[in-house]
Amino acid sequence: MSADNINTLVEVAIEVLERYAFMLGDPPGTKGGPAVLPEPSWIVTISFTGARAGGIGVVVSPGLARQAAANFYEDPQTEDGDEQAQDAVKELLNIVCGNYLHRVERNGRIVNLTTPSLQVATLEAATRYVNGKPQAMLAVEGHPLLLFVET
C-alpha cells in the first residue's frame, strides 16, 4: 500500500465526515492536532475481497463516536452500552471504505465489503495493533482519529 493510498484514504475520510456526519477533520500535521491515540480506543476494521483485497481501519475515542452519533440521531442514547455510537462509527467506516475503493479501483469491478467490526482496546493494545501499518492521524473536532491500512 503506497503513500498515495493513505493520502487518498485521508481525503475520502475528511469528505465523508463533513458530508455525512457534519464533522470537520484536519489532515495530518495540523498544528496543535492530537498526536496520541485515545484511552480507551475503539478499533473499527472492514475488509474487502474481489477485484481488490485488503482492509482499512480506524481508531477513535468513544467521545468522538458519541459526537458522531449525536449528529445522526435526533434523540441519541447516552447509556445502553454505546450501541448507537458504535453503529455510527461502523457505518462511517463502511462509507469511507466504499468511497475509497471507488477512487483506487478505477475499472468499475466489484469489490465485496465485509460488515465492519469493532473492538474496545487499551491504549497499549491499540498502539500494538496499528504498529507497522501505514497510517495517518487526523484531528476531528479536537479528537484524535487514526486511519490505517491493513497489511
Partner: peptide, 25 residues
C-alpha cells in the same frame, strides 16, 4: 442506497430489477 460504487454492481442490480441506484453519502 449503497457504498458500493462499482459499475459492475450497478449493472447487476439493474438486472435484478431495481429502479435506481444511489451511493452513500
Amino acid at each position: 442506497i449503497s457504498t458500493d460504487r462499482s459499475a459492475q454492481r450497478m449493472a447487476e442490480m439493474r438486472e435484478a430489477g431495481v429502479q435506481a441506484y444511489l451511493t452513500k453519502p
